[in-house]
């Protein structure tokens, strides 16, 4: 790798000098050597340069060989059995693991750039997405409200057509049942009520109907413009308003995402990537440290 970089950055003169010295040292082989010798045969300046370098090489080679001033033998009493070389044998594996971890780490960070992967930058866009979602919710709630407001009108004709078929309690249950098609909070309660009503035995049902009738007449007395068939309307409206009220707060001027909602959304794509990046980062630091330590001990 470094050789490639070096070959890209060195000048033509440097390349020529290296070739000249390699030839002088007998390190130029095969075709390269033949080509160089062909040039040497026709280039007197090159031959002169080669002669100068040969003189330098011979001059350095004439440096006197020194004798060691003393013996470097070890005292057998002071040195026991040499340690096993476990670290040195670990070095290639450690080096490979470090390189692989570094590659995976780069890959993990690179994933953030890939389109479609949720990242920290994407979270900034979430409020916009929430506004859109909230708008959809508003539309649903509006539709529910509309249905709810129309609900009282529907039972009335039915009631007129079947005056004896349904009691006031039944009507209330029916109206509430329809209204709560949109109000999720009420669904369970109403379903339970309907079930209870349905499962009641005939005598009990009659008793319940009587009680409901009594309650209805009592309510009717309190109503300002008492219309016996109308009571469900205001009550249903209140329920519907409640449902809207529940849905409205998050829609206020600037809808603020619920913390739990954001956490859930981030958790979908961001958190696992962050965890992987952190783990790879820690692993890389540990492996790099171990590799450098083993390398230092290794000879």
């Amino acid at each position: 790798m470094l050789d490639i970089l070096r070959s890209l950055t060195r000048t033509a003169e440097e390349k020529r000098q290296e070739e000249l010295n390699a030839y002088l040292d007998g390190e130029l082989q095969g075709r390269a050597r033949e080509q160089f010798e062909a040039r040497l045969a026709v280039d007197p300046a090159l031959r002169a340069e080669l002669a100068q370098l040969r003189a330098v090489k011979q001059g350095v080679a004439q440096l006197p060989r020194l004798r060691a001033p003393r013996n470097y033998t070890l005292d057998p009493a002071a040195y026991g059995r040499p340690a096993a070389a476990r670290g040195a044998s670990l070095y290639p594996a450690l080096r490979l693991a470090t390189v692989l971890t570094a590659f995976l780490l780069v890959l993990a960070f690179g994933l953030e750039i890939v389109p479609g992967t949720q990242t920290a930058g994407d979270t900034a866009e979430q409020p916009v997405a929430l506004v859109e979602t909230a708008t959809e919710e508003v539309a649903v709630e509006d539709a529910a409200e509309t249905t709810l407001m129309e609900a009282p009108a529907a039972p009335a004709p039915e009631e007129a057509e079947e005056p004896t078929a349904r009691t006031a309690a039944d009507e209330e249950v029916a109206v509430e049942g329809e209204a709560d098609m949109a109000g999720e909070a009420e669904i369970t309660a109403n379903a339970t009520l309907t079930e209870e009503t349905t499962l009641m035995a005939a005598p009990e049902l009659e008793m319940a109907q009587e009680e409901a009738a009594e309650e209805e007449s009592f309510d009717a007395t309190e109503m300002p413009a008492g219309e016996a068939g109308a009571p469900p309307a205001p009550e249903a409206t209140v329920v519907a308003e409640d449902a809207v009220a529940v849905a409205t707060p998050p829609l206020a001027p600037t809808p603020t995402p619920e913390p739990a909602d954001v956490a859930t959304r981030e958790g979908v794509g961001l958190e696992p990537l962050r965890v992987v990046q952190a783990l790879l980062g820690v692993a890389f630091v540990i492996l790099l440290t171990a590799t450098l330590l083993v390398r230092r001990q290794r000879i």
Binding site: L2, D3, Q17, E18, L20, N21, E27, K57, A61, L63
Partner: peptide
């Protein structure tokens, strides 16, 4: 290279560098 008569490959191993680096160092030294 010149005093001990080592080959480039051997020098590279001794100095823990590539052969290219050895070539460059010897060339500059000379």
């Amino acid at each position: 290279c010149d005093v001990e008569g080592r080959e480039y490959q051997e020098i590279a191993e001794i100095m823990s560098v590539s052969i290219g680096t050895v070539k460059s160092r010897i060339s500059r030294a000379r």
